Amino acid sequence: MQDIVSKSDLRAELLRRRAAMPPDARAAAGRSIRDALLSVPEVEMAGTVAAYVSVGTEPDTHGLLFALWKRGAYVILPRLLPDGDLDWASYEGPDSLVPGPRGCLEPSEPPRGPGAVASADVVLVPALAADRTGMRLGRGGGSFDRALARVGPAILTVALLYDSELLQNVPAEPHDRRVRAAVTPSEGLIRFA
């Protein structure tokens, strides 16, 4: 797949692969990712975790969000704004989620502003792929790149991936933001230099 150079071609191929995964394999991967993240020291100690509600064939985050919340972490989740930026609001359990734009679930709590992500101790972001330099390939809207631009350099930012989505290289543009780590079902947390 490394001969695919355009972001759009790479996205299409990765989405095809995700769609071809059996639901039980996706569920098992989500549990492995959850368990790996819950044992990461920064996550264990985090007062505030910025995360997201998985949708479609993304690695499942529902169990992870619930576990973080039950453990006492303050979990904030994005709310998509009309301009594509992300606002943030608190997660108060699975019943606090409501339908939002583009088929995503969002927290029903009051918005805290786009800058709320800057107060997080750990930031978990969706990705279709990442490479070992931390370059992340998202869905193309730029929402999480804007959010990552607000996060300080010492904060652990993690892309959640299936095993086959950690690539040799990911095409990038100047506005793209790197993550500091990725988590996969088989390798757990992988930190990037």
Results as ranks from 00 to 15, higher is better:
8 S>H: 10
9 D>T: 07
11 R>W: 01
13 E>R: 13
16 R>W: 01
18 R>I: 15
18 R>T: 13
19 A>E: 07
20 A>S: 14
22 P>A: 15
22 P>D: 10
24 D>M: 11
25 A>G: 10
27 A>L: 09
27 A>F: 06
27 A>M: 06
27 A>Y: 08
28 A>D: 12
28 A>Y: 13
29 A>R: 05
30 G>F: 04
32 S>T: 08
32 S>N: 09
33 I>R: 00
34 R>C: 01
34 R>H: 02
35 D>M: 00
36 A>Y: 07
37 L>A: 05
37 L>N: 02
38 L>Y: 13
38 L>P: 12
42 E>S: 12
43 V>D: 15
44 E>T: 15
45 M>D: 09
46 A>Y: 00
46 A>N: 04
46 A>I: 03
47 G>D: 15
47 G>A: 06
48 T>R: 14
48 T>L: 05
49 V>K: 07
49 V>F: 05
51 A>M: 10
53 V>W: 08
53 V>Q: 14
53 V>L: 04
56 G>F: 10
59 P>L: 15
59 P>R: 15
60 D>V: 12
60 D>E: 15
62 H>R: 13
63 G>V: 10
63 G>W: 12
63 G>R: 12
64 L>G: 06
65 L>G: 06
66 F>V: 11
66 F>P: 02
66 F>R: 13
67 A>V: 03
68 L>Q: 00
70 K>W: 06
70 K>Q: 13
71 R>N: 09
71 R>W: 04
72 G>I: 05
72 G>C: 06
73 A>G: 10
75 V>S: 02
78 P>Y: 15
79 R>A: 01
79 R>W: 01
79 R>Q: 05
81 L>Y: 04
83 D>C: 05
84 G>C: 07
85 D>F: 08
85 D>W: 03
86 L>Y: 08
87 D>G: 12
90 S>C: 07
92 E>F: 04
94 P>N: 07
94 P>A: 11
96 S>P: 01
96 S>W: 10
97 L>E: 05
97 L>S: 07
98 V>T: 13
98 V>P: 05
98 V>A: 09
99 P>F: 14
100 G>I: 01
100 G>D: 11
101 P>F: 04
105 L>K: 13
107 P>E: 09
109 E>H: 08
110 P>M: 09
111 P>G: 11
112 R>V: 05
115 G>Q: 11
117 V>F: 00
120 A>W: 02
121 D>F: 03
121 D>C: 03
122 V>D: 05
122 V>T: 06
122 V>G: 10
122 V>E: 11
124 L>A: 02
125 V>Q: 00
126 P>H: 08
126 P>E: 03
128 L>K: 00
130 A>R: 05
132 R>F: 11
